[in-house]
Amino acid sequence: MAKSDRDQRDEATHEYASPACMLHEVDPAYSGISSSEDRVSDIVTWRKAQRLRLIDERKALSLAQREDYARLIATYLDQIVTDVAGKHVSLFWPFLGEPDLRGWMAALMARGVDCLLPVVVDKAKPLIFRSWKIGERLERGVWNIPVPAEGKEAVPDVVIAPLVGFDAQSFRLGYGGGFFDRTLAALDRKPLIIGVGFESQRIETIHPLGHDIPMDVIITQLGSWRR
């Protein structure tokens, strides 16, 4: 049976990995997070199981549901991300059922925003952010992450980060590489940090550790919440 246009778009959307994706399945050296203490080790193990569950549940959503939710998320983002002409906003490439905000990214560019994509440069190192415009060439980076082939490095004023999970204290459960928190800790100027995901990814707690940095804002299809 021939694939529908929607199925083909869905496969294209999931060709690449988003920042630090799938790191719970690769060399632990890339995380740079110590698990020498029993408590930390237990939390790391628990988080791995939660990631697998939450990613499976997100992928189980139909494409139509994810598209509807992404449109709602974009509406709430417009209420938060205002007066940004000339500023740098970092987004992400959708993978494994993440909200596809590329349409919203195109609208930002039309408003004069310089959009960035994060780039993994080395194990246990902060990410860097490179500029990208629709139509410019992307190349496959580490773990097939799409990165701008010729983008200029910049520091974001706003970071839009995908959520694997999130809790009531606005802590983010990511993909396990530690890149996101390490990057925020290394920036001289703290950006506005917005985590985006689906309401089904809400959990009671991620059991935050010392390196975890909470989001300033969480946005799902049901609305936005400030820490």
Rank of each mutant, 00 (worst) to 15 (best):
K123A: 14
M215P: 08
L192T: 13
S131H: 00
T45I: 08
M215Q: 13
H211V: 03
G210C: 09
D216G: 08
A29G: 09
S224R: 10
V120R: 12
E153F: 05
V120P: 02
I218N: 10
S34P: 04
D78H: 09
L63M: 08
R9M: 12
I194Y: 06
D27I: 00
W104A: 07
K190S: 14
D212K: 00
D83F: 03
L116S: 11
F179R: 01
R71E: 14
H88A: 15
M109N: 07
K152M: 04
P94A: 04
D114K: 10
L96I: 05
L173A: 08
L209Q: 15
L63C: 11
L127G: 03
D212F: 04
H207P: 04
M105H: 03
I160R: 04
K123L: 07
L127P: 01
T45C: 00
W93D: 02
L192E: 08
V158F: 06
D157E: 10
D83P: 04
D38K: 15
D42C: 10
P19L: 11
V40H: 15
A20C: 07
A107V: 11
T220I: 13
K87M: 13
V164T: 12
A124I: 03
D42G: 10
F171D: 09
E139N: 02
P208W: 05
G97F: 07
L116G: 06
L116E: 06
F95H: 14
S170Y: 01
Q221I: 01
G151W: 07
